[in-house]
């Protein structure tokens, strides 16, 4: 049977109702999506059925997961954070600047850590072999960026506004425009891969991936803010997006820094 947007919309509504009931029954606010989220069909066979085994990190400060891999200047090149300058010509599309801070749960900056991004071009096409969307490739846009956070935990990218793209999960399935982010903290337990969205995208209600974050406030934290002070005159539109890493970390490592 053909899976329609209507089917998916109904499932999304049912998942929201289930979350609201959990909240009403005294359950906790869910900051993270559930791995078992059927409206996103790829999750069905790929989520564990057993609950995760909890490790109380305060019992053992020696756990290797409380430290993090290191990255440095030699892992980065000068044009890595400017996706509009990685080819001979200019990519097509609306130029944007995206900037924000990488923080831990205590609001402290994560300094000198690796931020990686990847995205579709302005037509909604990834420079990836397996991508089948027939929108044009842009020879001047790969859509990959890297940077290290500065002394205040800040990152900064120049790129083009990615386009939305169809993804065939169901009939007329479209992903809202987004930039994928990969982040490291001061501990491996803080590792995060996520997606940044743009304000007021009309596709939000229909997309099971963003809707997998059923908590309204948590979902809003995936959406960047238009920031006029980040817009560069005669050049680009600015978006601000702060990122807060979850997961415990070894607080004593930061002391004295």
């Amino acid at each position: 049977m053909t899976l329609t947007q209507h089917d998916i919309d109904r499932e999304i509504a049912a998942e929201r109702a289930a979350y609201e009931k959990r909240l009403a029954d005294g359950g906790p606010v869910e900051h993270q999506p559930r791995r078992d989220y059927a409206p996103y069909r790829s999750s069905v066979l790929r989520h564990p059925k057993q609950p995760p085994v909890a490790i109380d990190v305060s019992q053992d400060p020696e756990l290797v997961e409380l430290s993090s891999p290191a990255f440095g200047e030699r892992d980065i090149t000068e044009t890595d954070n400017d996706l509009t300058r990685q080819h001979d010509g200019e990519p097509i599309g609306e130029r944007i600047t995206v900037s924000g801070r990488l923080l831990d749960r205590d609001g402290r900056p994560v300094r000198g850590q690796l931020v990686e991004i990847w995205q579709a071009n302005s037509a909604g096409r990834y420079a990836h072999q397996r991508e089948q969307h027939d929108a044009p490739l842009d020879p001047n846009f790969t859509g990959v960026g890297r940077t290290l956070t500065d002394g205040e935990g800040r990152y900064h990218f120049t790129t083009v506004q990615p386009g939305p793209y169809p993804w065939r999960q169901h009939v007329n399935a479209w992903r809202p425009a987004h930039i994928h982010f990969s982040l490291f903290g001061t501990a491996f337990t803080q590792r995060l891969v996520t997606q940044m969205y743009f304000p007021s995208d009309p596709l939000f209600p229909h997309d099971p991936i963003i809707q997998s974050v059923t908590d309204d406030a948590a979902r809003q934290r995936l959406v960047a803010t238009y920031d006029h002070s980040l817009s560069v005159p005669e050049f680009s539109m600015g978006y601000h997006w702060d990122i807060v890493l979850d997961g415990p970390h070894a607080t004593w490592i930061e002391e004295g820094r």
């Binding site: 900051h31 790829s42 990847w118 790969t142 996520t194 406030a217």
Partner: peptide, 18 residues
């Protein structure tokens, strides 16, 4: 106000990036 940024899938198209 310092609340975690939710996780999302890495998706199918990270191969040219990660």
């Amino acid at each position: 106000s310092v609340l975690p940024t939710p996780s999302h899938t890495v998706g199918p198209f990270y191969g040219h990036a990660l």
